[in-house]
Simulated scan of single mutants.
Amino acid sequence: MDGDWKQQLDALHDGLVRRDDPAAWVTEMDAMDASQRYPDVAVRGPLFGVAALDPAAGPGWRLLKPVMDGMPQQARDALNSHLWFTAKDGTQDRAVRRELLAAVDVLEREPVNELEVLGVRYRVVRGDEFARTGPEGLEPPRPTDAEPPDISWDGPDAGPSPDLGHPLDPTGPAGLMAGALRLAMQDFTYAGARFPARVRRDSERAVVTHPQVALLPVTFRVVENSGHGWSSHGTFMSTPHGARRLLYSALTETWPLIQNFGRREKELYGRAAEKFRARGRADEMRVDGRRFRICRAERMVRCGPDGPEPPRPSDQDDYGPVKIHPTMDEEGALTYD
């Protein structure tokens, strides 16, 4: 460990001591135990969201849209919708609406990753998803991971994404183990033959252009072990129980429908789902030779002198810009083309 690393870790430790927070110490011990049981990091790949630098919201970049999209264009479309609905419902000022709609027009025609609108800088940002792994596989939720106060098995995951408004500050407050992880990931690059050469080159370049790392709120996923590795099902959830509820609804509703289950399969998966539900906070289950787990999904965004990293040249889109909302004039009137 070089001197800079040691100084930063010492500062994190001193901050934790000064806080004298028993709950923080329990969280740190939990994280330390996890680092020993799941010592390696498995990287899944890039994700994209939208950040804003808004003087009215205070200093620094903050997330406007969650870093959860699989392609840059999905994040551009999310920004398009944000600006369009702000023009539709967020103002009665014709000049303000004109400027918002001018930005929408650009996003409908060009794959831009940054716009300035009404004094606010918007940027499509790139993150990486990763998880801890060890001999037992991907890391499940920790005892100190927050659960919702109401443990319900009906409806969608409660509450907004924890990403919304999250500051992209690579030097902000962090626990000792989170700070160590942040430092450890600074030198991370894609390596190995499974990554094309241009992806590896862009990854190595990003370490230089965006050398710092901002960690995003931890989320949770449903994953399945096929015997050849882990694959994910569904989207990110903000709590472990949200992911359990997602798995339960997949077993009882979604998969029987989209996979055209027969009667035997419906009954088999239904019984397994009810047993899983009855166990309360279980994080693993098996059915019909399949093994599922609730796992922690961690994410990071690289940052440089000018803020968070945008998409890289090697990041791919399956489609380009497109008009996604009706035409609006400066009075707010809509035209359906």
Rank of each mutant, 00 (worst) to 15 (best):
R286S: 14
R76T: 15
N80G: 12
L101P: 06
Q316I: 09
Q186G: 08
A52L: 09
P46V: 06
E28P: 09
A52W: 00
H228C: 09
A95E: 08
D69W: 00
E110C: 02
S314R: 01
P143H: 02
L47S: 05
E147H: 11
V222A: 11
D202E: 04
D40M: 06
E147W: 14
V218I: 11
T239Q: 05
P39V: 03
R126H: 14
L215W: 00
P141T: 12
W255A: 09
T235Y: 03
P256K: 10
D169E: 05
E224A: 13
F188S: 10
D187H: 11
R97T: 01
D14P: 02
E108M: 04
H13Q: 12
M32A: 15
V17A: 10
E284A: 14
G179F: 05
D30F: 03
G3K: 13
D157M: 15
H13L: 10
A206W: 09
R121P: 01
Q73S: 08
L100H: 10
T209G: 06
H241T: 11
E284H: 07
T239A: 05
V213N: 01
T189W: 04
V222E: 10
S203Y: 08
A180Q: 15
V17K: 09
P170N: 07
V218Y: 12
E274F: 05
V322E: 07
V17W: 03
T252Q: 04
R142Q: 13
L251G: 06
E267T: 02
A56Q: 11
E274P: 03
E139C: 14
P111G: 06
N260K: 14
Q259H: 06
L251K: 11
E331Y: 07
G127H: 05
G280W: 01
L164S: 02
W5F: 12
I294P: 08
D288C: 05
M29P: 01
D317G: 07
L268Y: 02
T219Y: 01
R290K: 11
A131L: 15
G304T: 00
R279P: 00
I258V: 13
L176I: 15
G172K: 13
T171H: 12
R142C: 07
D54A: 14
A23C: 02
P143S: 00
H13D: 08
S161L: 05
D318P: 04
L215K: 01
R296T: 15
V322Y: 05
A146R: 15
R98F: 00
G270C: 10
P135F: 03
Q316W: 01
R19V: 02
E28W: 10
G227R: 00
P162E: 08
L215Y: 00
P217D: 06
T327M: 09
Y319W: 12
L118D: 02
F292P: 04
K275H: 10
H210Q: 02
M177Y: 03
G90Y: 12
V50A: 11
P313N: 04
A193P: 04
T327K: 14
D105Y: 01
A24E: 14
G175H: 06
